[in-house]
């Protein structure tokens, strides 16, 4: 068995004395693990950082074996943003989320392309909104897509004048219009306008925060609860850092202070 592909490194950990166990999201072969001989050497420093774009060759005697990688570096977004805590947190969070939720060896070419686009968009001012969109896409890829095309209650499509979609049902993930959702606004999640092509309110920070709250709810209650796992601390660290950087109130957290990155 042997194939080549483009890949994004999700995680890497020591394997024996000199090798590394590398998990990567490949474009055509999905989330895939393998052993990289010499992966702990100087040569691979910086190449195996989370989010690094690489060209890989995977080789094994049979398809169900762990197999071995050959890795060539292409681009390392984490290396470009080591001094930028927020952007670095976004890269680490995206890699940690994909590592945690994607099934092994199940191709997600759309998500692969979207992740590359996200990393390339980190230079733009609106990258936090693009990150939220990316998380909406991730939810869709793992079977928990939000329906933001029409009101779940009235059937009104997106774009209806004077009664825009303004909320999302926390149970079904379907959008609800302003008028239909008003009596239940305390129980519904606010739908930021940029997710349905309406642009930003003000500077957009509160919209992004609402978007992170929206995707965070479905990641926590639907994706991770089903696996009896918690959302990676890396994502929580990103949200906390974003809210703090923009002077927004921290979300209500049940239990103790969050743990790491």
């Amino acid at each position: 068995m042997e194939w080549t592909d483009d890949a994004i490194v999700l995680s890497s950990r020591p394997f024996g004395d000199t090798a590394a166990l590398v998990v990567a999201l490949t474009r055509e072969h999905g989330r895939h693990a393998g052993v990289l001989h010499g992966g702990q050497s100087q040569r691979y420093r910086g190449v195996l950082e989370p989010g690094a774009q690489v060209a890989v060759r995977w080789r094994a005697r049979t398809a169900d074996q762990l197999g071995t990688w050959t890795v060539e570096p292409v681009r390392s977004p984490a290396g470009l943003y080591l001094d930028d805590p927020l952007r670095l947190a976004a890269i680490v969070a995206a890699a940690a989320l994909m590592d945690a939720v994607l099934a092994e060896r199940e191709a997600h070419p759309g998500l692969y392309d979207a992740t590359l686009a996200l990393f390339q968009a980190l230079d733009l001012d609106i990258w936090p909104a693009i990150y939220v969109r990316w998380e909406v896409g991730l939810l869709e890829e793992v079977g928990f897509g939000l329906d933001l095309t029409q009101c779940a209650s009235t059937g009104q499509p997106v774009g209806t004048p004077n009664d825009q979609l303004a909320y999302v049902s926390p149970r079904t993930g379907r959008a609800v219009s302003l008028s239909a959702g008003e009596p239940y606004r305390d129980k519904l999640l606010p739908l930021p306008g940029f997710l349905i092509g309406l642009g930003f309110q003000g500077g957009g920070e509160e919209d992004v925060a609402a978007g992170l709250r929206l995707t965070g709810h479905f990641l926590e209650r639907h994706v991770f609860a089903q696996r009896h796992a918690e959302v990676p601390p890396a994502r929580q660290r990103l949200v906390e850092r974003y809210l703090r950087a923009n002077g927004l109130p921290a979300p209500r957290v049940e239990g103790a202070e969050s743990r790491e990155p």
């Binding site: 910086g46 950082e49 989010g51 984490a78 080591l82 001094d83 805590p85 670095l88 947190a89 890269i91």
Partner: peptide, 14 residues
């Protein structure tokens, strides 16, 4: 270390 983990820790300590 100049790695994602090292610098994430540095930002946290800052």
């Amino acid at each position: 270390n100049a790695t994602a983990g090292g610098q994430t820790t540095a930002h946290y300590l800052t």
